[in-house]
Simulated scan of single mutants.
Amino acid sequence: MKLLPVLAICGLVLVSVVESKDLIVGTNLSNRLIWQHKVEYNSIPLKKRVKEEFFSDPGQQIIKGIIARDLDHTDSSATITAGGVGYSYVNLRFKSERGSGLNYQVEVYA
């Protein structure tokens, strides 16, 4: 019975990643913003830029939502490589398209 909510969340993650380049996992409705950060990385011609960001809550609150918005609306990507919803930490990996930089606004809700 616990498998059904996990499958539903995975399905929503896949739909949100396929439809846009913004990463939206979990929910921010009636949850408290515990971390907000801007991820920026300058562009280098003909190169892809990769940056990793790590957040760990010192109060060990469980993360209920993560939003990473691409402010430049490029074809760059944001993925969760460790932790995330259901954990008290998250590791995010950002990868730009060739010749572009990164400009993301990241919000974590608990």
Rank of each mutant, 00 (worst) to 15 (best):
G26H: 03
G26P: 00
G26Q: 08
G26T: 05
T27P: 09
N28P: 09
N28D: 14
N28W: 13
N28I: 02
N28Y: 06
L29Y: 11
S30W: 10
S30M: 11
S30L: 09
S30K: 14
L33N: 08
L33G: 04
L33S: 06
L33T: 08
L33I: 07
I34H: 11
W35Q: 03
W35A: 04
W35P: 00
Q36M: 07
Q36G: 10
Q36Y: 11
Q36R: 12
H37S: 13
H37T: 11
H37D: 13
K38V: 13
V39Y: 12
V39E: 06
V39N: 03
E40N: 14
E40G: 05
Y41H: 07
Y41W: 02
Y41S: 13
Y41C: 03
S43W: 00
S43D: 01
S43Q: 07
I44K: 11
P45C: 04
P45T: 04
L46W: 05
K47C: 10
K47E: 07
K48Y: 10
R49M: 09
R49H: 03
R49T: 04
R49V: 00
V50R: 13
K51F: 06
K51D: 05
E52T: 10
E53Y: 12
F54Y: 15
F54R: 13
F54K: 13
F55E: 06
S56H: 11
D57G: 10
D57C: 09
D57P: 01
D57T: 03
Q60E: 12
Q60W: 06
Q60M: 04
Q61S: 10
Q61V: 04
Q61E: 13
I62T: 15
I62V: 15
I63W: 05
K64T: 02
K64V: 04
G65A: 03
I66P: 09
A68S: 13
A68D: 02
A68Y: 02
A68K: 04
R69D: 02
R69P: 01
D70L: 10
L71P: 00
L71G: 00
D72E: 15
H73Q: 09
H73M: 02
D75L: 09
D75C: 11
S76H: 07
S76Y: 01
S77M: 10
A78Q: 01
A78G: 07
T79S: 14
T79Q: 12
T79C: 11
I80E: 01
I80Y: 06
T81A: 10
T81F: 07
A82C: 04
A82E: 15
A82S: 15
G84N: 10
G84T: 10
V85N: 08
G86L: 06
Y87Q: 12
S88Y: 14
S88E: 07
Y89S: 12
V90T: 07
V90D: 00
N91Y: 01
N91R: 12
N91I: 04
L92E: 05
L92K: 07
L92C: 12
L92N: 05
R93P: 03
R93I: 01
R93D: 05
R93V: 09
R93T: 15
R93Y: 02
F94T: 07
F94D: 02
F94L: 05
F94A: 07
K95M: 12
S96R: 00
S96T: 01
S96K: 01
E97I: 03
R98V: 13
R98L: 12
R98G: 08
G99E: 06
G99T: 00
S100R: 00
S100M: 00
S100K: 06
G101M: 01
L102N: 01
N103Q: 13
N103S: 13
Y104Q: 02
Y104K: 09
